[in-house]
Every structure is written in C-alpha cells, then in structure tokens.
C-alpha cells in the first residue's frame, strides 16, 4: 500500500525524518478522518475540502498513492460543493487506513530496532 521510495523521496532520503513524519501522520490522520466524517454529516463542504486536502497531501507524502487519490476525489467533490458520493469514498478511506497505519508502524518499529 505504501511506496517507500516515494516516501523517502519526500524526506530527501532521510529515514529518521521519515519516522518523525510518520509519527506526525499517525497523530494527524485520525483527526482529519474525524473532520471528514463530521463535515459530511453536517454538509460542511469547506471543512470537508480542507480536511481532505490535507489528508491527501499527507498520504501522497508518505507514498500512499491510492488512498491519496481517494482523498483527492473527496477534495474535488467538496470544492464543487458536492456531498453526493463522499460518504462512500470516506468509507473507502476508513477501510484502507488501518492497513496503512500497520505498514507505517512496521517501518517505525524496524527503524527503532535498527537504532
């Protein structure tokens, strides 16, 4: 699910920095998902746009291209003030994220072990 070369490209090949970034992502991503869920429920396309935009960038920075695309689709719909279909996409993201978290955790554990 994760393209590690892309992820490392983001940090200029710095693995330690990548670990920091992953930790930040694990802290931020659940919050963004919560924002997305709330925004869809409340019909708040402004919040939905911002949250999905940030989540998209985060996912792409970490090489999670597929989920990044899903978030991007939500962002585009939100920019057009369209809510229809966003709940389904949100569900897709929710389903995919645990796998991403696992893979990232695995990497972090390996890095820590290496240290």
């Amino acid at each position: 699910m994760i393209d590690w070369s892309a992820a490392l490209d983001s940090t200029g090949g710095d693995e330690a920095l990548l670990v920091d970034v992953i930790e930040a992502f694990q802290e931020e991503a659940p919050r963004l998902m919560e924002n997305i869920r709330q925004a869809i429920a409340a019909g708040d396309t402004v919040l939905l746009h911002r949250a999905s935009h940030t989540l998209k960038t985060n996912l792409l920075s970490l090489g999670a291209a597929d989920s990044g695309q899903t978030a991007f689709t939500i962002e585009k719909l939100a920019r057009n003030q369209q809510l229809e279909g966003t709940d389904r996409l949100c569900h897709t993201l929710e389903t995919a994220l645990p796998g991403i978290y696992d893979e990232l955790n695995q990497y972090v554990r390996q890095r820590r072990g290496a240290r």
Binding site: S10, T11, G12, D14, L17, D20, V21, E23, A24, F25, E27, E28, T54, T57, N58, S61, L62
Partner: peptide
Amino acid sequence: EDSLVNQKLAVGLLEK
C-alpha cells in the same frame, strides 16, 4: 503550514 505531517517534513528538510 497547518498540517502536522508537512510541518514535520518541511522542518526536517530545512534543518538539514
């Protein structure tokens, strides 16, 4: 930058 991930990434790169 409002995103934590980007903050970490950018700060990491710039401090490097």
